[in-house]
Design a protein around this nucleic acid. Structure first.
Length: 783
RNA sequence: UGGGGCAUCGUCUAAUGGCAGGACAACGGUCUUUGGAACCGUCGGUCGUGGUUCGAGUCCACGUGCCCCAGCCA
């Protein structure tokens, strides 16, 4: 249970799973508990989907639990409608949060008690300055803050005031409760953060019961603890807030306690997700609503026809790391196609009809057409395939009847008077196959006044006639008229926010040249065409692949049996259209080469040394220490002092690199558990040839963790450098024998494999082999 | 500007100091009654400069670039 199956796990291994596995192994928690805590102040979007995937997926992977918690601590922004929508969206995604949704607002009483405890401990106080004054007193990033005149109120006074705040004796903004932490902290978040503020507003759940509300920082930490959370995951912008989280845990909770970990946000190309921007799209009429299929909201994606399985697949592929990233649209589209390809039955529809008359077809022909292509049938595990109704039947039963009549429609694009190179469709005098209905030849075509082709006259040829390609079609008599809504990316640029920012910098007039100016005017195209009659009998929520055009389903809001409306969920991959477009673009515009040799500042200057540092720098150099290390030592007295002390019993030249490169970080932070004498002892062993640098490296790392004397570790583990070729050679021979393929690859020129062989030997000998010697031997044996 | 976070193919993501790997995209091919799918293959990367090391994406230093923090929002 503690390590998920690599194939079925939700979340791929990452820095957080590493922590979880370590915590489970060490028995710090019986089982892990995560939580997904949206604020009900808007609709869920793909960002929420990815974040929830991590929280719920991790819990699933490690046999834990994930709570869904409404972080509803700001009554002015939140609505029941949003909370309900959020819950519905999460359920749609398929998450299970146990018997009940958790609400921060359900814990208000407990939180209030905890605040009282903080006051009683002298760790929180009621401040009564104005918001502006508080901002001023907080200082700025480069100036420390100054205490408010109310910072030293007595515990009794604070208690009294806080109770009166709750009792509603004060107006908005008159008082707040603040944590007493550190007004001069370089971390701005720690400058006495607000814990409670007065808000006289109706809360969608607690009504007027409260007029004081906990802040994000206070509520997040306390409700995590109350919910039994073990791993509290949030996005990177809250890194600074972790200090408050830990401070609150330390003073209010006894272990086991939750810890906060942060991961990078994910955004998507060609879209925006901030609530403010989404609202402007809706209110500005750029889209038809929050559930417009172009919106990145889950409501929008759902209405578009995307299935939750596709969203989860997408989230899984996006992955998780400690960097904010913008994901390629292709990843989402690919996930949707991968989900739909094996689940969407195929039918035919013509989006932009061109009338065709079959001059030699005397009576209609009814054809049984399979819903599935051969490869989907082949891949079926039980040999059965689905009908649109969901019923699974034998492949030969998975068919619908389609009628070919003398009057029919084909796609306007499937005919060209003057075809481009490689065109595999209908041309004047040319032949093409109508899917499953025979080959036709175009004898004549008619044009309208505008010169556009309006009708084709064709002859139906025998089955064996040669054809350039296969196209889809719909009978004019039997086909049902339908509206098709073809969605494209909402914005015409991949990074609308970043582009808008650049525009602002370029021009002073930024107000109307913001991200909205990048809205793609062609993001919705509506066509009227025909779809084969069989769909009339299918469940309304059936997702189809309309052959050669894309995945579609009926718009759940606007489609009616009498007036069908189909949304395009995603196009098919179109290698022809793509190469066509690329061809046009390259021939139309000859791109100007961007000027070469761009200017790059060549300021590779070392940061300046003071006179005193220069003197020390030269002194170190004169002792034989290289420039790079001497520079560090000259600048950092702590390291220099450490080195000087160690140098009393070991050669300074040999010590310097260990001090600078391996112990530097620990010494600087004052947390080095290796003493100067300890290092000197180890270096003596190195100098005498008893141990190798490899061993020094490993021992130092261990000593840094355990605090044990390095020489003692060497003695206890019996570490000793093996410089005896006779002992090493059999090991090398064995490894070569075990990896014949690598030997071949090496001899074929993949010399990077030398590292593999050396590494194997080092591992076998627990790092004790003399690496130079091993390398030498390996080289000789391999060549 | 003080503090913090981050940097690996076009994109996303892996690699106890020891083979820079995977996925998506792109490109080429096989197959195909979908210019789809599937299959095979190709292309392509460690931000820069030094240092430590037998060996550095990983450790050290100095740069460069991006993101977050000065709400009684979350």
């Amino acid at each position: 249970m503690s390590t998920p199956n690599a194939k079925t796990r939700y979340v791929n291994p990452n820095f957080i799973t590493e922590i979880i596995e370590e915590d489970l192994k060490a028995g710090r928690y019986q089982k892990i508990v995560t939580r997904f805590p949206p604020e009900p102040n808007g609709y869920a979007h793909l960002g929420h989907a990815v974040a929830s995937y991590i929280d719920f997926g991790l819990a699933l992977d490690y046999g834990g639990e994930c709570r869904l918690r409404m972080d509803d601590t700001n009554p002015e922004a939140e609505k029941a409608e949003y909370a309900e929508a959020l819950i519905a969206d999460m359920r749609w995604l398929g998450w299970d949060w146990g018997p009940a949704v958790s609400y921060a607002s359900s814990y208000f009483e407990e939180l209030y008690e905890m605040a009282l405890r903080l006051i009683q401990k002298g760790l929180a106080y009621v401040d009564s300055v104005s918001p502006e004054e508080m901002a001023r007193l907080r200082g700025s990033v480069d100036k420390p803050g100054t205490p408010s005149p109310y910072r030293n109120r007595s515990i009794e006074e604070n208690l009294g005031l806080f109770r009166r705040m709750r009792a509603g004796e004060f107006g908005n903004g008159e008082h707040v409760l603040r944590a007493r932490i550190d007004l001069s902290s370089p971390n701005m978040k720690l400058r006495d953060p607000v814990l409670y503020r007065i808000v006289h507003a109706e809360h969608y759940r607690t009504g007027k019961q409260w007029c004081i509300y906990p802040s994000y920082d206070f509520a997040q930490a306390t409700t995590d603890a109350l919910d039994g959370v073990t791993h509290s995951l949030c996005s990177l912008e809250f890194v600074d807030n972790r200090a408050i989280y830990d401070w609150l845990m330390e003073h209010l909770w006894t272990p086991p306690r939750p810890y906060q970990y942060e991961f990078g946000r994910r955004s998507l190309e060609y879209t925006v997700v901030s609530k403010r921007k989404l609202r402007r799209l809706v209110e500005g009429g750029h889209v038809r609503g929050w559930d417009d299929p172009r919106m990145p909201t889950l409501a929008g994606q759902r209405r578009r026809g995307v299935r939750p399985e596709a969203i989860r697949r997408f989230a899984s592929q996006v992955g998780i790391s400690r960097t904010n990233r913008t994901v390629d649209m292709a990843l989402l589209e690919g996930s949707i196609r991968d989900d739909l390809n094996p689940t969407a039955p195929r039918v035919m529809a013509v989006l932009r009809p061109l009338k065709v008359l079959l001059t030699n077809l005397t009576s209609p022909k009814t054809i049984a057409m399979p819903y599935w292509p051969h490869d989907v049938i082949q891949d079926s595990p039980d040999g059965l395939v689905a009908l649109p109704s969901g019923e699974r039947v034998k492949p030969e039963k998975a068919v619908r009847l389609v009628t070919l009549t003398s009057e029919l429609y084909i796609e306007t694009d499937d005919f060209a008077i003057d075809p481009p190179q490689g065109f595999k469709r209908l041309t004047p005098g040319g032949a093409v196959r109508l899917k499953l209905a025979g080959v036709i030849r175009c004898d004549e075509f008619k044009t309208n006044q505008a010169g556009q082709v309006s009708e084709l006259f064709c002859t139906l040829l025998g089955e064996d006639a040669r054809a350039d390609g296969v196209i889809h079609w719909v009978s004019a008599e039997y086909g049902l008229p339908a509206e098709f809504r073809l969605y494209d990316r909402l914005f015409s640029v991949a990074h609308p926010e970043a582009e808008a920012r650049e525009l602002e910098e370029d021009q002073e007039t930024h107000e109307d040249r913001d991200f909205l100016s990048f809205v793609n005017p062609h993001s919705l195209e509506v066509t009227h065409g025909r779809i084969e009659a069989s769909v009339a009998h299918d469940p309304a929520e059936t997702r189809y692949q309309l052959e050669r055009t894309g995945y579609f389903w009926q718009d759940p809001v606007d489609s009616r049996p009498s007036t069908l409306v189909f949304n395009r969920i995603v196009t098919l991959k179109d290698t022809w259209g793509r190469s066509e477009a690329a061809h046009k673009a390259s021939s139309a515009v000859k791109k100007l080469d961007s000027p070469v040799g761009e200017v790059r500042p060549v300021s590779q200057h070392k940061s300046e040394l003071t006179l005193e540092q220069q003197t020390r720098f030269r002194a170190w150099q004169s002792q034989g220490i290289n420039e790079s290390e001497a520079l560090v030592l000259a600048r950092e007295p702590k390291l220099a002092a450490f080195l000087e002390e160690a140098a009393q019993t070991a050669p300074v030249r040999s010590l310097a690199s260990w001090v600078v490169n391996d112990l530097g970080t620990a010494i600087r932070s004052g947390e080095s558990r290796v003493t100067p004498a300890g290092l000197a002892g180890l270096v003596q062993l190195l100098e005498s040839g008893e141990i190798s640098t490899r061993i020094v490296k490993d021992v130092l790392a261990e000593a840094l963790g355990s605090g044990e004397a390095p020489a003692e570790i060497v003695r206890k583990k019996g570490l000793k450098q093996l410089s005896n070729a006779g002992a090493l050679e059999p090991i090398i021979d064995r490894i070569m024998a075990e990896n014949p393929d690598k030997v071949v690859a090496y001899r074929a020129g993949k010399t990077g494999l030398q590292g593999f062989f050396v590494g194997q030997v080092m591992r076998e000998t627990r790092g004790q082999a003399n690496p130079q010697l091993v390398q030498e031997l390996v080289n000789r044996k391999l060549s």
